[in-house]
Nucleic acid binder design. Structure first.
Lengths: 194, 194
DNA sequence: ATAAATTATTGTCATTTGGCAAGTATCAGC
DNA sequence: GCTGATACTTGCCAAATGACAATAATTTAT
């Protein structure tokens, strides 16, 4: 497994030059995760800053009735970790699981912190990753407020078809904030109908 | 206006010592915002990293029908800025407005970046602020998925009564993702009823 | 390949929430 | 204090979504 995608991801942030990317990427170690295996389990402290180069993952926790709720999907070329747990060194409330066979590269919390404090460009990179996470959470939040379930579904279909192809519908339903029954009906409804 | 609350806020992050807090706080300048005035308007680039020491603010934007949607409330002792706009130097999609007379302290983007790169402890502080924002967005997201409108309302009532006291109900309604009609009914409903 | 388990769809009906309009209360400016 | 504007409440009904249960389809394990 070569690390081209990692190099490209580091550079695409706009803060890291090609030669810096090579130096930084040298700290990352490869990691493969089989379908259905876990990157993180509830109660663990997230210790890996994981770049997903291929595959699909999801994060989930449980509601008060014990139902599994998907809180996030992670498609290729994203950093996957549990932000609160990782930075605060607290037990994670979430699980992160592979929906397909996955491959990627990781550094530990300690390595990440060392790079963060020693390299301006990596610092900017880390910050930009956090800002990107905030922006996507906000837009999902806004969508929950302003859009109907149907619109949210169609948006996901348009923006992330990989998810539709590989994730079970019940996971997609809870991610969209609806029941699987409703999702099933939305999908059955002839498209373009009001 | 003395800066004790700012000092205390910096220290309470756990990353900044009292003497460092004094040095860092020295860069902040005081700012007062009258009720209904704006800290940020749609289209501007957010350039102030603003610590709100007293008062209440809200962020809002507009949906496709032109309705005002409250995206966030900011109570005292929080950093107020538009994350994407501030860090990416792009025009803000949101407005940030004072709901009561407000006072606080700010540094510019440039000052913030200088401190971020020159001081380990401030760097950790900035990161912890971003992580806190992410955590609160996630818990609000989860609440949108798992809780009923009534539960979300009661939760807000419990966790942030200042908001209930000073924000118009229509702002609270859009923040909770419901219409003001529905909020009105929820409030009218005898509490504890199912 | 088969059986068991999981996942997805569909029917029926209840509940929640929304849309609109009328009426009431509150607030801001003069 | 008046007056107009804005905000809030309430009634009526419609639309969206959920709950539960019965299939149907698909996946997984053997």
């Amino acid at each position: 497994m070569a690390n081209e995608t990692l190099l490209q991801f580091l550079e695409s942030s706009g803060f890291i030059s090609p030669s810096q990317a090579v130096e930084i990427a040298a700290h990352f170690r490869p990691k493969a995760i089989g379908k259905h295996d876990f990157l993180l389990r509830e109660g663990w402290v997230s210790d890996e800053y994981f770049f997903l180069s291929t595959g699909l993952m999801r994060a989930f926790s449980y509601d008060k009735d014990g139902n599994d709720v998907t809180t996030a999907f992670y498609t290729a070329e994203q950093i996957v970790f549990e932000y609160s747990s990782f930075f605060r060194r607290t037990p994670s409330a979430e699980n992160i699981q592979a929906l397909t066979d996955c491959e990627g590269w990781f550094i530990t919390h300690q390595q990440m912190n060392a790079l963060f404090h020693s390299r301006n460009e990596f610092r900017e990179f880390v910050r930009s990753v956090l800002v990107k996470i905030i922006a996507s959470l906000k837009s999902r939040m806004l969508s929950m407020i302003m859009d109907s379930a149907t619109e949210r579904y169609e948006h996901l279909l348009r923006e992330a078809p990989q998810i539709m192809q590989h994730a079970p519908l019940k996971n997609i339903a809870s991610y969209l904030g609806i029941t699987n029954t409703s999702l099933s009906r939305i999908r059955a409804r002839p498209k373009g109908n009001s």
